[in-house]
Design a protein around this nucleic acid. Structure first.
Lengths: 202, 202
DNA sequence: GTCTATAAAAGGATAGAC
DNA sequence: GTCTATCCTTTTATAGAC
């Protein structure tokens, strides 16, 4: 927990980690206090309540998608299609690093929170939309290698689906091979799309 | 709540519904008592604790996959590939019927329970494995229309991934179109696989 | 096997001094 | 803006009568 952080930042960072490790409901305010070494008064001075911390966490993920996720994943990768798989490889590494115990923080929260209030649900949706938007822009860059009538939003969502479904199964079975097989299937999907373009051109 | 049910059965049925509606942590024992019209003493006579109810619920899903899910979905559908999509259509109907508020009960529990004990995790995994097994048998039946080297387990898992990812996004956006686009992408995947077989044969 | 009452702990949140 | 102490509710689980 770095020194230059405000109380608010400390709380958000700790909550990001704890919600990822344990989920929202299983993380108590006391857990956050313990991890930040703050006292109850400071926390409730910075946030009206626990749910407001969740909102701040989801905003942090939303605003951090490029610096925290995309830019590191794309170091040294220029091809737009390979950038998609580089992003997925980043998740693969995170899964493997945690012995398949933890998955996508947004996906987990999205399925844990059944009766989320509109602010929370809107932020979950925004996180997904932004993630899919990143993929869509890659697809647009690679448009010459993809069918002309391709629905880029649909394929972007399908990439997210592949990631989330792979993470879910890898975590449940505690075996990253489930994730790998999903990525391989998606790779085959892209290959078949590309080949259908080649044949049309020939 | 039918008459001929044992206390245990009443509890499992109520818990299945409540865990699906609200999740495990957000369902209190009091919720289950209220829905079953039982008293605390009866519940704790039938089950040592709340987690044992979860185990029984997951066993019920595991044992009920054919009568509760597969057989109704396959009424009047004989083609093995179409049976896969009929199963997915069943989930689509469930999503639409609930205004996209609820998803796959197993998937939600799998992502909600981060530190599940081995009994629970094993049952979640068994539910996934059985579901994928159903798809794998359809793929085996349609083997002549699929590439000879096809990894049926991998494709079965990919079908589950498509379902879970579609449910996750449809629920988060409260819009079944997200699910539909995922199914359309999977359909295209199957079509491309089939066309690659036709070309090889020609 | 079911009833009522209650224990025991955890959880979210607040008060008021500093 | 942070401290300690504490309130109030919810939650899981138990005790003991019937």
């Amino acid at each position: 927990m770095a020194k230059g952080m405000s109380t608010r930042e400390k709380i958000v960072l700790a909550a990001m980690e704890l919600f990822w490790l344990k989920g929202y409901n299983s993380t108590s305010v006391a857990d956050i206090l313990s991890r930040t070494q703050l006292n109850s008064g400071s926390l409730y001075h910075a946030f009206p309540g626990k749910q407001d911390i969740l909102v701040a966490v989801l905003e942090a993920y939303r605003d951090g998608i490029y610096p925290m996720l995309v830019e590191p994943a794309w170091q040294g990768v220029d091809d737009p299609i390979e950038r998609i798989f580089a992003l997925l490889a980043r998740y693969r590494a995170a899964i493997a690093d945690t012995d398949c115990a933890y998955g996508c923080p947004i996906g987990s929260l999205a399925l844990e929170l059944h009766e989320a209030d509109p602010a929370v649900r809107g932020l979950l949706a925004a996180n997904f939309t932004n993630w899919v938007g990143v993929i869509e822009r890659c697809l647009a860059e690679a448009a010459d290698r993809l069918p002309a009538d391709l629905d880029r939003q649909a394929l972007g969502e399908f990439v997210l689906t592949t990631m989330e479904g792979g993470v879910m199964q890898a975590r449940t079975h505690r075996d990253v091979a489930y994730f790998d097989r999903g990525i391989a299937a998606l790779r085959r999907h892209f290959d078949m799309l590309a080949r259908s373009v080649e044949r049309t051109a020939a």
